[in-house]
Simulated assay, not measured.
Amino acid sequence: MTVKKRGYGTKDMREVSDTPELTKEDFAKAKPFAEALPDLAKSIRKGRGPNKAPTKTLVSLRLSPDVLTHFKSKGPGWQSKIDEVLRKAAGVKR
């Protein structure tokens, strides 16, 4: 068995290798996570959640690949840079 280096070594893998393979019957008996552990499932945050003061609206926008490449090449914050350019083009001030 090949072990990827993420903090676990061959010895660690040997210690847990006695876990039997799951069968079709095991999978047939399995319950969805939310059904098996409902309290835990409710406590797990899904997504970012609501903003304290929403200032932007989530949209889906199709951009040309070259435009997207240009903005992404500028590094983190590329979506905000697109917003800034669109604000200027629309003549909208903050």
Rank of each mutant, 00 (worst) to 15 (best):
S80M: 09
K74S: 00
R14V: 09
I82K: 00
T69H: 08
K4C: 07
L58Q: 15
E25Y: 04
H70C: 09
P32M: 10
D66W: 03
H70Y: 14
T57C: 04
Y8R: 12
G75I: 01
P32G: 10
A53G: 07
T23R: 04
L37F: 13
A41W: 02
P65R: 12
I82Y: 00
A53F: 09
K4P: 06
K88L: 15
K46C: 05
S17V: 02
L22M: 13
P65L: 09
I44Y: 04
V3D: 08
S64T: 10
K4W: 07
P38E: 05
T57V: 15
T10N: 04
S43Q: 12
R14K: 14
Q79E: 13
Q79V: 11
L63K: 00
G77L: 03
M1R: 04
G47E: 01
K52S: 10
T23Y: 01
K46W: 07
K31P: 03
L86I: 15
P76M: 00
V85N: 00
S60Q: 09
L63S: 01
V3T: 12
K5H: 05
V67P: 07
L61W: 12
I82G: 00
I44S: 05
G77W: 01
V59S: 04
L58N: 14
P20C: 04
K72I: 03
T10M: 08
V92K: 14
I82F: 05
A90P: 06
L61M: 15
L61V: 14
E25H: 10
M13E: 14
T2S: 12
A28C: 02
V3M: 02
R62L: 11
L22T: 11
L68K: 14
P65W: 00
G77N: 05
T69C: 03
R87D: 06
G47M: 05
H70S: 11
